[in-house]
């Protein structure tokens, strides 16, 4: 019933009505849960859970680790929680970050016989020279393997990509709301299943309504800490195909964004002449004389090799 509800967008009231009808036709003493809330409570221990971390509404700091007990922001002085109203005793924070820990989700892939066979595909497949069917065929990945031979020696180590972009859960004409899901993808898997939704792990949801801008680094702190831990010391993982434990390490290979989001993730403005975070000041952009706008026209030719015929093209 849970799968049917999520696949077809069934409302909670609709779910409860169907359960009520099913309970009426089942014999007395059945154990079918009476409503959605009871069923969800029963299923909760099976999930991997998530962590709620309080966040300053101005994106100054996370109430995390050594700052977990603070009651107001160290930078702007904004209160952490909303003032209590009425008789309610619940303390509600102004803004919360929901963080889905990545380590147990990666470990689960090695515990299932259906997924574990694909986890070493990136090193076991034999590509054709000159053809790139997977990122593991690329020069960047081969260079990484040569620089970190200890990491690449274990084919079960994970290569990850981080994707984030702005998302408006409401219609574009409704109230503007900037929500930022951060998704990790696994590049050990073959291309056919690499981009399937079940293998793309939602790592955190940065809620709005305002865009965090370059302060997205504050929100990414728990994820970076966990990735650093997975890179340096790894996590002990059970491999069901080999019936043994191994230390799984992970490396963040790529970040994938559109150009405006690239500015936020890299903290390098993608406007004006120095718009490329990688080449920095080494580009040949210029300002149009009358328009005053930045132009990158004809800036690509100096990337060509010295003997290329387009270097000397006069027409």
């Amino acid at each position: 019933m849970f799968t049917i509800k999520s696949d077809h967008g069934l409302s909670e009231a609709g779910y409860d009505k169907i359960i009520e009808w099913e309970r009426s036709i089942l014999p007395e003493g059945n154990r079918l849960k009476e409503n959605f809330y009871a069923a969800k409570s029963m299923m909760k221990p099976l999930g991997l859970g998530y962590q709620k971390i309080d966040l300053c509404p101005n994106f100054c700091m996370l109430y995390y680790l050594k700052n977990a007990e603070l009651t107001e922001c160290m930078t702007c002085g904004h209160s952490r929680c909303k003032p209590r109203t009425g008789r309610g005793k619940t303390i509600v924070a102004y803004k919360k970050l929901r963080y889905f820990s990545i380590t147990p989700r990666l470990q689960r892939l090695f515990m299932s016989p259906r997924t574990v066979e694909h986890m070493t595909w990136h090193q076991s497949h034999h590509g054709v020279d000159g053809e790139m069917v997977h990122l593991s065929d690329g020069e960047a990945r081969k260079h990484f393997n040569s620089v970190h031979p200890h990491f690449s020696a274990e084919s079960r180590n994970m290569c990850l990509g981080l994707c984030t972009n702005e998302f408006n859960p409401f219609r574009s004409f409704a109230a503007p709301y900037s929500c930022w899901p951060v998704i990790l993808t696994i590049y050990n898997l073959p291309p056919g299943i690499c981009m399937r939704p079940e293998f793309m792990f939602l790592s955190m949801v940065i809620s709005g309504p305002s865009c965090p801008g370059q302060n997205i680094d504050v929100c990414l702190r728990p994820l970076i800490d966990e990735l650093m831990q997975l890179w340096s010391s790894g996590a002990l993982t059970y491999d069901i195909s080999r019936k043994s434990n191994f230390v799984m390490r992970a490396a963040l290979m790529w970040t994938i964004n559109d150009f405006p989001a690239y500015e936020m993730v890299s903290c390098w403005s993608t406007h004006a002449k120095l718009a490329f975070p990688y080449y920095m000041e080494n580009n040949k952009a210029f300002t149009l004389t009358n328009e005053g706008k930045t132009s990158f026209f004809d800036c690509h030719r100096h990337f060509l090799p010295l003997n290329h015929r387009y270097k000397k093209k006069r027409k």
């Binding site: 580009n283 004389t289 026209f297 100096h302 090799p305 006069r314 027409k315």
Partner: peptide, 15 residues
């Protein structure tokens, strides 16, 4: 006005 006609690119690729 900047003209690009006949311009020979002499710079090498950035590092």
């Amino acid at each position: 006005m900047i003209s690009f006609v006949g311009r020979v690119e002499k710079d090498v690729e950035p590092p």
